[in-house]
Amino acid sequence: MDQQASQAKRVSTSGTSSNRASTAKRSSTNVPKAPTSLDPNAIIANHAVLTGIHTISVAAGTVIHPHARIISTYSAVDIGPGCIVSEKAVIGLSDLSQDDPEGDLELPEIIKIGQNVNIESGTIVEAAEIGENTLIDVDVKLGAGSVIGKNCTISACSVVPPGETVPDYTVIYGNNQRRLNKSLQSTPVILDIKSKGHEKQLNVLQRLVPSNLAKWQ
């Protein structure tokens, strides 16, 4: 892998305006590199893509896998501490016309992702907010402006329609059935176990996924 080499190159050119053009070429689209505010302890893989015009901020401990895409073309993105964003996940509004042909949808000014949120591969996150400790599983689509509560589990391939509010402790599973996660609500130990597991995963990922923060600063 040429990561070391490219990292070195990035460091040397980081912060300059010439960086922008080369990034655009690299990601093979003509969207500009987004302005960012990254915590030095965040892990952003070399092949992750951060584009757009609004600020993308990533807090400490968050791991952004290679080929994850964060798009701030229409609204800023704020990712809280300890999140995991997997490959193929897309955070941010990418194509407005698809979701909102009439344009009457209220777009969030900022996409805010809380602490310890796990966003799995293939998800499309256009939600305005995701509460802490929520799991967004594989291939989930969160519609524009939806609000997901804390400690939710959105199971694989579920769809949350635009503008929807999902209360705390909700589980969406199967063919978009919903239920309340009573065990998690009533037994705090499970939450402890879960967040411990999440912490351990972050720890392992920090060792496995090489970071290239400099590329995006």
Partner: peptide, 16 residues
């Protein structure tokens, strides 16, 4: 396709 090894906490250690 995404092919990704699974991980879990086993005996206090998270392992892929």
């Amino acid at each position: 396709c995404v092919i990704k090894p699974p991980c879990r906490v086993s005996r206090g250690v998270l392992t892929y």
